[in-house]
Each structure stands twice: as C-alpha cells, then as structure tokens.
Amino acid sequence: MTTLPRHVAENRRHWDATADQWVASGERAWARMEPTWGIWGLSNDELPLLPQSLREQRAIELGCGTGYVSAWMQRRGADVYAIDNSAEQLATAERLADIYDVERIEWVHGDAEAVAQPDRSFDFAISEYGAAIWCEPRQWLTEAHRLLRPGGELVFLGHHPLAMVCAPQAGNNNIGVTLERSYFELGELDWTDAAEDPGGIEFNLPIGEWMALFRDIGFEIDNYVEVKAPDSAAGTRFWMPADWSKKYPSEQVWWLRKRQIGG
C-alpha cells in the first residue's frame, strides 16, 4: 500500500473522527434545492459558484464531504464524480443520496491530490472547503488541471488569507484584529494540537502566490471575489465574528479556466 502524505493521513483521521458533527448541516443542505455558500450562506445569485445549467457536462467535486454540492450539480444536469478523503463523510453522502433518490453521482473514497481518472475527463470542477483548504495547493491544483478538458472551469471557495493571518496560532478562539502570523509565510496551517476545531492540517497562500501558481500550472483567472458578511449577519460562525467579516474578507472565491492553447 502507498503511504499517504502526513497531511492527507491526518485529515482523514480528523474528518472520520468528527463526521458525526456535520450530519445535521449536511441534511439541511441536501434539503435545499438552491445552493448557499460559505460561512454566511450566501445565495448562488450573490455568489455564483455554480452555473444555472450543467446539462451534458461531467463535473467533479474535490473534497465532497456530505455531498450536498454534488447533489446541487446533479440537479443542474451534470454527471458527477464526488471524491472525499473521509469514508465516514461519504457514508452520510451516500445515505442522503438514497433518501433523495439522487443518481448519476459516483461516490469515491480517495485523495483529491491523486484522482484515479483519465486526463481531460471533466468539464467542470469545484471545491467548497474541501481540497480548497485541506490539500496542498500545488498538488491538488495540478491534479485539477490534469482532470479538466481544455477550456474547463475550476471554482473554489475557502478562507481568505487575511483571516488566517488573524487566526490565533493554536486555534480554539475567534479570529480577531491582531496579526498572529506572517502573511508572506502562509502555507501549511497545522491545527493538530488544537483542543477543539479547526483540527487537521489546512493550507493557504498570499494572494500573489495563488496567482503565480495558477499561471504556472496553466490556469487563467476568470474572476475573484473577497467575501464579506452580509449586513444582516450577527454573532459568530466557525470562529468568524460577523462584525469582523463586515470589515475584512473572511473568504475568497476563485473562478479559473484551463487554458485552451497547450492545455
């Protein structure tokens, strides 16, 4: 058997151990016919990660968790390949797919940095807090590029790097206004010693490094959005205070396209 990289093995352990904590939110998301995104539950009209139609397209979700994004893509007409590092998360996804009688989704237990599919297999790829933050950036983006057909689109949403700069070193406390780590040294964020969430090993990069990486791999940038909390937001979600996110970006979304020439 191939030995998993440390971050893949640790994140598998973490998500298998905590999968029960995400069942209820997965059930709520599956019950919604229209997508909502990220910490603040923004509508697809406000933050259009998914096109209105994916008919006759083959789509992949990289780090599908409980599978609700894959269900939303299937309802838009796509044939979906959904891969996740956690067998326990996939068990929830498959159970909910049976309840909602959703077909044309292939559920796969595996690492989004090494997908057992041929080159140029997909028209559309997405990651919402899956590979986007839990996989090593160059590895998973290179794999996504390999999997997409020329002109194919990748959309991903995760933490904004500024939020990670302001996240306490040990986790467990709310994001604040103190700079806790170097912006230019963002990379691996190891939360394995945290007593509670976030746990696992995350990744992020300065914005300029993201852009250079996309260019080096062979992606063009179609769009980029820095996400703020809506005016109606209150309280704290996932260690993110609404008042903080009304002033500073809590999340980022990249819309990328595989270059046609030389793709």
Rank of each mutant, 00 (worst) to 15 (best):
A82C: 01
F156W: 11
D231R: 12
T92H: 13
E220L: 13
Y100V: 02
N11Q: 02
E128C: 09
H159N: 10
W254E: 06
L50G: 01
D243L: 06
P48T: 09
D79W: 10
F184P: 02
A132H: 02
L154G: 09
A31W: 07
Q57L: 13
H145P: 15
E34W: 01
L179N: 15
E209N: 11
E88H: 05
Y68P: 02
A24S: 09
T92F: 03
Q57I: 00
D193T: 14
D101C: 12
A114L: 08
S182D: 10
V80T: 01
D190N: 14
T178N: 07
T142Y: 05
T36Y: 13
W37D: 04
R138I: 13
G158C: 08
V80R: 00
G262M: 10
R76D: 00
L50Q: 06
L49M: 11
S43C: 04
A234N: 12
E180T: 03
E128W: 00
A78Y: 06
H7Y: 14
T142Q: 05
S86Q: 01
R215N: 13
W134V: 07
Q117M: 15
R149T: 11
A97M: 01
Q252H: 15
L154N: 03
V8Y: 06
L47F: 05
P198D: 02
I207Y: 03
D243T: 06
V227C: 05
K246N: 06
R58H: 11
G171T: 06
E209D: 15
R12M: 14
G199Y: 08
A233P: 09
R215G: 14
A24N: 15
E61K: 01
L148C: 12
S182C: 07
S86D: 01
N223D: 10
V253H: 15
T18D: 00
S25F: 10
R215C: 14
W254V: 13
G199R: 08
F219T: 12
R259S: 15
Q21W: 14
H7G: 12
A78P: 08
E113K: 00
G199W: 07
L42Y: 05
I60F: 05
A195L: 05
R95H: 07
Q117L: 08
E180V: 00
N44V: 02
I207W: 13
L49Y: 05
A87C: 02
S43P: 13
W72L: 03
L62E: 13
I83D: 02
A114D: 14
A112C: 14
G262C: 15
T178D: 08
L54H: 11
D231S: 09
S53I: 04
T142S: 15
G263A: 11
E56T: 07
A131C: 04
I126R: 09
E180G: 01
A212V: 12
W134T: 12
G26T: 12
M73P: 10
L49N: 06
L42P: 04
G63F: 00
D16H: 04
